[in-house]
Design a protein around this nucleic acid. Structure first.
Lengths: 251, 251
DNA sequence: TGATTTTAGAGGTCAGACCACTAGGATATA
DNA sequence: TATATCCTAGTGGTCTGACCTCTAAAATCA
C-alpha cells in the first residue's frame, strides 16, 4: 500500500467528494473491482443519504478521472482495462497551454524508450510470449491496416506492462491515446507496414535479449520514423487553418 | 496548433459534453484565458439553452480534469498556474490498480532526470536566473523548512519549464503533487536541508553548463536521496496497516 | 426459427425552490 | 478616525420529483 492520502482538495463540493471518498474506500478495501457495476443511481443515492443530483456530480467527477464508466440505459461501472491518467484532459490542457505536436512525440518517445529499456531488464517470459505473438500477428495482417493497428497497440501496451511500472505505463497510455487518431490515419496511408513490422520485431528481439540500451534505441528510432511519416502526410494534405477548430473528426 | 481533435468519447453525456466542447472552443480561439471567470451558472445555462444541472455536470467534468476551478460563492475560473494532467486521478487509479511507492519514485526520477537533461540543452538565460535565485533562497531559508520547500518546488518547476516541453512538465507536476504530502514531512524532519541545498546547486550548475548527462545524473542522485530518506522516516514511525484505509489524514 | 414489438430498468435532463459561502458595503462602536 | 460587526448581493451547492431516452432482454408474431 502506498499512494499518499490525497483527500478532497480544498474547494471541491462536499457531497460530491463524499461520493468520491466512499467509492475510494470501496476500491481500497477491495469491495469494488475493475469491471464491477455500481447500484442504480436512485438506490445508491438513498443509501448514501444524498440526492441523486449530488451523487451524479460525484460520479461525473470519477468518470472524468477515468475511474468510472457510465453507460446510458445500462449502468455505471468501475473502469476496466489499462489505467489512463487524466484520460481526456490532455486535449483541453493542450489547447489551454499551447502544447505542440512535437512535444507530444518527444514525451511519447521518452516514455516508450524508457519503458522498452525497463522491459528489457524486468520483462518476464509471459510478456515475451505475448510480444512475439503480436509481432507474428502484425506480419499476418500486413494487408489489413485496421487489424494491424490493433496488434501494434497491443504490442506497445505489452511492453509497458513488462516494464513493471504501471504508472509509467499509464502515462504512456494517456499520450498514446491522444495521438491515436492521427496515428491511425498515418498507418493506414503509409505502405510501410512491412517495415513497421520489421521494426517491431527488432524491438522485441532487443528486449528479449535483455539489452536495455538497444531496446531504447530501436524503440526511439521506430517512433522517430512514425513521427516523420506523420509529418509528411500531414504536410501533404492541405492545411485547414481557417478556423482553429474545424471539427473534422469524422475519420 | 497541434493536439489531435479529441471529441466527446463515446458514452459521455451529450449536454455535458456540449458544455465541454463550447468551452474548448472558447479556449482554442483564445476567448478564454487562464484565470478568466465564467459567467454565473444561471446566466450561462440560459445562454447555452440547457438546464443549470447539465451545465454543472459539464463544469464538474472540466473541474475534475483540472481545467476549471470552482470557488463556492465566488465563481468558476479557468485554471491558472502550471498544468497538471489528471490532477486528482492518480490516487484513485493507484488504489484501483495497485500502484506502489517505488513506482512513483521511479516515474518521478525518470521524468525529472530527463527534464534536467533537456533543460541543460534548451534552457534560456531567464531560466538560469530564476534557478539561481531559488537556490539562493534555499540557502537563505535553510532554517525554515516551510519556506525552504516552497523554493525547492519552484526550483524543480523552473527546470521543468526550461525543458521546453510542457507536457513532460505537466506529467512531472502530477506525480510531484501526489508525492507532495509525504515529501513535506520528510523535508521537515530531515536536518539535511543544507545538503539538499548543496545538491540543488550542483544540479543548477550542471544545467547552466549545458551538461545534459551530468544534469540527469545529479538530479537522479538527488531524488534517490530523497527517496531513501523518506523510506527511513517512514519505517521509523510505526506502521498502521490494521485497516487498509485508516483515514488519518489529519496533519 | 427468426424478426418485431413491448417493456422494465437505468441513466439523462429539467424546473424551480431553497441553502451556504464570500466579499464588500453599511453601520455601530470605541 | 479607526475598527469591529452586521447585512446584503451575488454565486455556487443541494434537493425534489417528474419526465425523457437508451439498452437489453423478454414476449410476441410471422
Amino acid at each position: 500500500m502506498a499512494m499518499p492520502e490525497k483527500k478532497a482538495q480544498a474547494s471541491d463540493t462536499q457531497l460530491a467528494m463524499q461520493v468520491v471518498n466512499h467509492i475510494r474506500e470501496r476500491i481500497e478495501d477491495g469491495t469494488l473491482q475493475p469491471g464491477d457495476k455500481l447500484p442504480p443511481e436512485r438506490e445508491f443515492a438513498r443509501k448514501l443519504k444524498i440526492s441523486r443530483a449530488s451523487l451524479r456530480t460525484g460520479i461525473g467527477y470519477l468518470a472524468a478521472m477515468g475511474v468510472m464508466k457510465v453507460r446510458h440505459g445500462v449502468g455505471t461501472f468501475v473502469v476496466d482495462g489499462p489505467p489512463e491518467i487524466g484520460k481526456s484532459s490532455l486535449g483541453l490542457l493542450g489547447a489551454l497551454h499551447g502544447f505542440e505536436s512535437w512535444q507530444m512525440f518527444e514525451a511519447r518517445m521518452l516514455l516508450e524508450g524508457n519503458l522498452a529499456a525497463l522491459a528489457a531488464e524486468r520483462g518476464k517470459e509471459e510478456h515475451f510470449t505475448a510480444m512475439a505473438e503480436e509481432v507474428a500477428e502484425m506480419y499476418a495482417t500486413i494487408d489489413d491496416p485496421g487489424e494491424y493497428l490493433i496488434h501494434d497497440v497491443r504490442f506497445h501496451r505489452t511492453i509497458a506492462q513488462a516494464s513493471g511500472n504501471p504508472i509509467l505505463a499509464a502515462l504512456m497510455e494517456t499520450i498514446s491515446t491522444a495521438l491515436y487518431d492521427d496515428r491511425r490515419k498515418t498507418v493506414e496511408l503509409s505502405r510501410g507496414l512491412k517495415d513497421s513490422a520489421e521494426k517491431h520485431r527488432e524491438i522485441f528481439r532487443a528486449i528479449r535479449a535483455r539489452n536495455a540500451a538497444e531496446a531504447r534505441k530501436v524503440m526511439e528510432s521506430h517512433l522517430q520514423l512514425a513521427k516523420t511519416a506523420q509529418e509528411h502526410e500531414r504536410a501533404g494534405r492541405g492545411r485547414r487553418n481557417a478556423h482553429p477548430r474545424t471539427k473534422e473528426n469524422g475519420s
